[in-house]
Design a protein around this nucleic acid. Sequence first.
DNA 1: TTGAAAGCGTTACCAG
DNA 2: CTGGTAACGCTTTCAA
Lengths: 351, 351
Amino acid sequence: MVLEIPMGKRLPIPSTLKDVANSANVSIPIVSRVLSGNPEVRVSADTRQRILKAAKSLSYHPNASARSLKAKRTYTLALFVPDVGNPVIPEIIRGVEAGAQSAGYAAFVSHLDEKAVSEQRYLTWLQEGRFDGLILATARLEDSIVEDLVRSRRPFVLVNRRESSTNMHITVDDAAGARIAINHLVELGHRRIAHLAGPLMFDTSLRRLQGYRQELDAHGIAYDSSLVQEYSWQTWEGGKVAMKRLLQGKKPPTAVFASNFMGAVGALGALKEFGLKIPEDFSLVGLHDSPIAEVIDPPLTVVKMPLHEMGRRAAEILINILEDRPCVIPQVLTPEGLVMRKSTAPCRCLS
Amino acid sequence: MVLEIPMGKRLPIPSTLKDVANSANVSIPIVSRVLSGNPEVRVSADTRQRILKAAKSLSYHPNASARSLKAKRTYTLALFVPDVGNPVIPEIIRGVEAGAQSAGYAAFVSHLDEKAVSEQRYLTWLQEGRFDGLILATARLEDSIVEDLVRSRRPFVLVNRRESSTNMHITVDDAAGARIAINHLVELGHRRIAHLAGPLMFDTSLRRLQGYRQELDAHGIAYDSSLVQEYSWQTWEGGKVAMKRLLQGKKPPTAVFASNFMGAVGALGALKEFGLKIPEDFSLVGLHDSPIAEVIDPPLTVVKMPLHEMGRRAAEILINILEDRPCVIPQVLTPEGLVMRKSTAPCRCLS
DNA sequence: TTGAAAGCGTTACCAG
DNA sequence: CTGGTAACGCTTTCAA
């Protein structure tokens, strides 16, 4: 079955203020004022009726381009995300949308693929005024891009990423998140706790590693660099491979803290391949929650981060800048806490 | 740590054609022609140089609102999706973006939450000309909305959903997908094959059920309505509950075909709870692939649907309409086929 | 209470 | 080759 689109499917010619004015036998400005919805405007009841009727029958809708040309604003925010497939992204998206919507702004999402081409694209769009402000939720981002952004002097907020060239960012407290995970494992009696670290070129990865070391320290456990493996986020395989390397070490760990959700799932696969039973033989804690975490086998214990709030705050900050209102907003958000499921248990070394 | 935004962080005043014209000592129209990038325009090398230099030093960027006001076009498409968290959505998004981008259009995604408020929102935006066309990738959608859409005479395409009031839709061949799944199971020797059906108010669910029955028929297997359970998409729990009901029946099945990815994962949970080993004791086939399918335990055998292509085609159709070009495009896309992993095996009843 | 006029930044159409 | 003028649809003065 094929869909045939014939030519000449004329697009509708939208009606304008002028059309409505003509139809109602009034001038354009009045129509504008009446239809702008401001209840303050003083017009005779009769005129208002005529205008409203005409607008309805012509199914008038104000033209967004004309409006923004005049207002020098689009009341639109754009959110760029690295990978819509990453399970933590939806939460951020929803947060941004909530924040934007409650302030009367629209928020659109665009996907940033690998191609460098697209990296420039959003800067251009921003500079063309297609939207008023930008939220970037991506760890992999060339520094030069951020510098261009700063130089453009357009409003933007970095989400989940810090950058020396600007303080316009909002993040979660990654170190604290890691500490929560490690503390949980230590309390279960684990001593050889491994860490699947994200790419150490990302500051979020670095902070998680830092939290891992801090908490180990706090419990008097010596740091063993052979228990830390770096892996690539973005794929489900990275965590698996890294976990295998960990298990092949001479003194393998009894527990692991994976620095993102995908890594945790990958690690799970590796553990099973090695015939380890979770949580009896081995404990696993992930960072970032996701609906899938509940339904995989075993359901994953994770540290939940305030991703929704982070998104919402990012939108709020941006809008405050746009409306030139001062604001004071916490910039580093506290983890929501541990979500205990079935992937952690007391260390066998205790028995 | 808090982020303080002081007042008076003046937004930059973008430079305009006029600024460039003044700076280069030429008229506005020439600047427009030179900067529009069309290599055909004939200008003296000297003028061109001056203009280019001025534009650069003023970091000029054309104003998108002004352009679209003039052109009556935004060269922007909007894609509305029901739930960014649903693992099949990213693939569609990428398809739409690819299709849009290759035709010089931008594509933005917006998330359609439960609130009825937001259901009207995108229609309004479309009518305001915030974007030229709309792609709707949502099964749950009130009929009245589609009717409003048709009435608005604005271009739109429905993805993965048919609707009597319009032929502007592109779908995958759900029945064929179901047949592939069932055929695979039958070939493995299964005879009591259950089906986890999506909400039967969606035509996609109906077609999958239909394909299930057709293929059973084709193999001379009697249809047993007790082997079909309806469940809710959108949550990970629905499939689990439905699968349990199936397993508690008097003559339980030996295999199941789940009508979406989430349902398959949910079913997996139920099967494990019942102590069934997959695939030795029970076979499971899902519909729609996802990167997670490879990494869960066991890796899921699924029927892969051309979601990316569906998105790309949707964008193509829309753009053809917008540019008033005739086009003929297949409207029902053939499944890409079976992706065999580890969740299906020959029926034990054979041994 | 209403309307005329100007202008937002761009492009298209003519003249020069 | 170049530039003046008009127009896109809307809002905002300012007069009437």
